[in-house]
């Protein structure tokens, strides 16, 4: 059995795809591209796909991960291409590597998020960020299936900074003008602290109230480097293992690269 790990995106309008919607679309894509999937045993067999930490509905992502199990080996690069062609634009399959190491999930310990706050000025955003970071704990509320839940949004935040987003074309958005961008590194914890929890925290500590909903995108996910506050590419160990060891099946070429996240956080790329 061959296992392949994929990185995919939720871009543009398709960020409104829920995880369930994505799953169904992905499983259809597997059938369209005739991937020799391994099936679970049982009364209603399911193709073996493991998903990790899906981004919430409505947030974009450049760094979602999943792993599939195949009954026959396939070249990851061409598999990626045909799967990507079978998915709607925006749900793009951007990377595929053969799993050579254990525990992808163990290497997903933190996320890097970008929050675009149209209509919020940089000074205002900086001030709010400073207040948030200065607090020991920031209690926020979230509505869950079991009612309103209160928890700390501060501890999981490893880094938070405000950048000026105005030069990224905000000037031609009439009426808005100002635009601040928050760059957030958050540790995966239980309960999970999501970007909107951090936004609630900013409102709680500094009254920051963006006039339009923030556009949120996950830029990267990976193993947290506690010292630098950055995350490393979770697929890198598999890729390195492939270059170090010969491929599993004769004639298969390993997929390499194309990953903007390779080697760590795309720092300063904005």
């Amino acid at each position: 059995m061959q296992r392949i790990r994929l990185r995919y995106t939720k871009r543009g309008r398709l960020r409104f795809t829920s995880h369930r919607d994505f799953q169904r679309a992905f499983e259809r894509a597997l059938r369209r591209s005739e991937v020799p999937m391994a099936y679970s045993a049982g009364f209603t067999p399911h193709p073996k796909v493991s998903y990790a930490n899906a981004a919430p509905t409505g947030t974009g992502s450049e760094a979602e991960f999943l792993e599939i199990a195949l009954t026959e080996p396939r070249d990851p690069a061409s598999l990626r291409e045909s799967l990507d062609a079978s998915m709607p634009d925006g749900l793009d399959i951007v990377e595929a590597v053969e799993a050579r190491t254990s525990g992808l999930a163990d290497r997903l310990t933190a996320s890097v998020w970008e929050l675009r706050l149209d209509g919020v000025g940089l000074p205002e955003a900086r001030q709010a960020v400073a207040a948030f970071l200065a607090a020991e704990t920031v209690e926020v509320e979230r509505r869950t299936k079991n009612g309103l839940r209160t928890f700390d949004a501060r501890a999981a935040v490893v880094r938070l900074e405000a950048l000026d987003g105005a030069f990224e074309g905000a000037a031609d958005r009439p009426g808005l003008g100002a635009c601040a961008i928050l760059r957030l590194v958050v540790r995966h914890s239980t309960p999970a602290v999501r970007p909107d929890d951090v936004l609630s925290g900013l409102r709680a500590t500094a009254d920051l109230a963006p006039p339009v909903p923030a556009a949120v995108t996950r830029l990267a996910q990976g193993l947290l480097n506690e010292e630098t506050g950055t995350v490393t590419d979770p697929l890198a160990p598999d890729r390195e293992a492939v270059t170090a060891a010969p491929p599993t099946a004769a004639g298969l070429t390993a997929a390499t690269g194309g990953s903007p996240a390779r080697g760590g956080v795309p720092e300063g790329s904005a």
Binding site: R13, L14, F16, T17, S18, D21, A25, R28, T57, G58, S86, M87, P88, D89, G90, V212, P213
Partner: peptide, 23 residues
Amino acid sequence: VFPRLEALLPHVQKPIQYVGGEL
């Protein structure tokens, strides 16, 4: 009208039904 609609979508049930882009 998408830029204007987009701002409303986080506030509604099942926003995916309004975005199109189907295969």
